[in-house]
Each structure stands twice: as structure tokens, then as C-alpha cells.
Design a protein around this nucleic acid. Structure first.
Length: 249
DNA sequence: ACACGTGTTATGCG
DNA sequence: TCGCATAACACGTG
């Protein structure tokens, strides 16, 4: 589920449902998801406090509590759930209970999500939906790595995942295997604009699953939405990649 | 049974 | 130290 748009939706869920409620209990017993702290350490830092603000950069979120900051990452399968019954099979990997009932949980079957105290975001690039034109040009348009791998590198620009990368490369007719430094400024500017537009659209429609090329490649019959030719599939930057060999030559 | 996956990070190599 | 590639991580799903 989670790429930048899903995480922004999760942040809004936190902002609307988890702020200004007194925390009376914390379940941080999953010592794989709750790291690197000892069980009870997050609980000790948050119990009795209220979350006051919910922030996001790329796919990382953090909430202020007046004292410690709680960092949340959804990993590949995580979701934020507010005021629901505890999930079966301990799929709630982290949870806080609020005074008077109700709770906030990180639901994550695969356990690749994270709940951390005072998260370190030093290795995170600027948010992919906010980065300015010149910064995008200089950070994305360098190196011999495939442009898709560059877009997926969270320290270059934060928030683009596997599906969004395919979508914006399709929208700009750029071959995902091109070396990043071979892109000219026109192509880089187009990539940035396509990213902003795709994020806006995904936010409006409910996630990256709703984007046309994502549907065509993952759920559809594998034909190009533009020329109807057959899409190609291969590993690029270690990830499954779809593109149109005709339009993205 | 077995490979795959919307993410991150540790490790290895030039 | 840097840039890049790959494996590993956990575990449900098809």
C-alpha cells in the first residue's frame, strides 16, 4: 500500500484521530517493529502525554508528544488504524490506548513497519512532492544508475516507491533503464511535474493503485494505455518494472 | 510447495 | 569515502 500518497493519507488520519487525546497505555511489545528500544521504553516515554502534531516527509511520519517524538513508518504493508478493535493474530504491531477508550494502532501483517522514539531522518532527501525545480534537477539528474533506481533512492528525493516510479516514467515517456545523468533539464522538469501531478491525483482518488499506468500494468491486460502495444516487464534497480517499449524508448 | 512483493538497510566491491 | 548492486529481513498471498 504505502507510497507517498498513502502515507500522507495516514498522516491525515493521525492528525484527525490521534491528536489531543491522553495516552493511558502503550503496547510496544513487538521488539522487531518497535526498535531499537527495549519493550516498555516507548510506553514509558508516551504514557500520560498527548500527541500534538503529525508530520511527514516522504514515506516517514512522526508525531510530537510534548516530550519524545514517535516515528512511524508503514513499511510495505502497514496501515494506521484509529478506534478499531485490536486486530487478530497480533497484526497490530504497535498501539496506544487513549483515555476514555479508543486507540491508535500500526496494523502491519509483514512487520516491515517501524515505531521508533526520536527518529533520525538525516538520510532522507527532500519530499518528492515539495522539492523545488533546481534541487530536483541536481539531485535526480546525476550518476550512472538507472533513472528508476535514482527515483527510488529515498536519500535523493523522498516518497517515490516502485509503482509511482513506473507511473511517472510512463507519463514522461522515459525509459526506466536510462542512466540518470543522461536526462536533460527538460526531461527532469517533466519528471518533477509528473510526480507532483501523480501524487495529487493519487491523493484525490485514494492511493497509487488508482493511477492509470499502475492499473494497466499490475491489474490490467499488460497493454499500454496510450498505444495499446504490449508492455515490457523486467527487474530494474532490483524491483519489478513495467514500461512501454514503444512509447518509452 | 514455492515464488513474489507498494520498503529499508546491511554488506560487499571497485 | 562514494556510488552502485545485491542479499536479507518477515510473512501473508496467489
Amino acid at each position: 500500500m504505502p507510497e507517498l500518497p498513502e502515507v500522507e493519507i495516514a498522516r491525515r488520519t493521525l492528525a484527525e484521530g490521534a491528536l489531543h487525546r491522553t495516552i493511558v497505555a502503550v503496547d510496544d511489545s513487538d521488539d522487531w517493529v518497535c526498535r531499537p528500544h527495549e519493550p516498555g521504553e516507548i510506553a514509558g516515554a508516551l504514557t500520560g502525554r498527548q500527541f500534538t502534531e503529525a508530520h511527514r516527509c516522504g514515506k516517514s511520519m512522526w508525531v510530537h508528544s510534548g516530550g519524545a517524538t514517535l516515528g512511524l513508518h508503514l513499511g510495505m504493508s502497514g496501515r494506521i488504524v484509529i478506534d478499531a478493535e485490536p486486530a487478530p493474530n497480533s497484526w497490530d504491531r504497535f498501539a496506544v490506548e487513549f483515555e476514555g477508550g479508543g486507540r491508535m494502532a500500526l496494523f502491519d501483517k509483514r512487520r516491515l513497519g517501524r515505531a521508533v522514539l526520536d527518529p533520525d531522518h538525516d538520510d532522507l532527501g527532500p519530499d518528492a512532492a515539495e522539492v523545488d525545480r533546481d534541487t530536483f534537477r541536481e539531485r535526480v539528474g546525476r550518476g550512472e544508475t538507472p533513472i528508476k533506481a535514482r527515483l527510488l533512492d529515498q536519500s535523493t528525493v523522498a516518497g517515490i516507491g516502485n509503482l509511482l516510479a513506473d507511473e511517472v516514467l510512463f507519463r514522461t515517456s522515459i525509459d526506466p533503464r536510462r542512466e540518470a545523468e543522461t536526462l536533460d533539464t527538460t526531461e527532469l522538469d517533466a519528471l518533477r511535474r509528473a510526480t507532483r501531478a501523480a501524487v495529487r491525483s493519487a491523493l484525490d482518488e485514494g492511493g497509487v493503485h488508482t493511477l492509470a499506468f499502475v492499473i494497466a500494468s499490475r491489474d490490467g491486460d499488460g497493454s499500454c494505455p496510450r498505444c495499446e502495444g504490449e508492455l515490457e516487464r523486467a527487474k530494474v534497480g532490483g524491483r519489478t518494472t513495467w514500461w512501454c517499449p514503444h512509447d518509452q524508448g
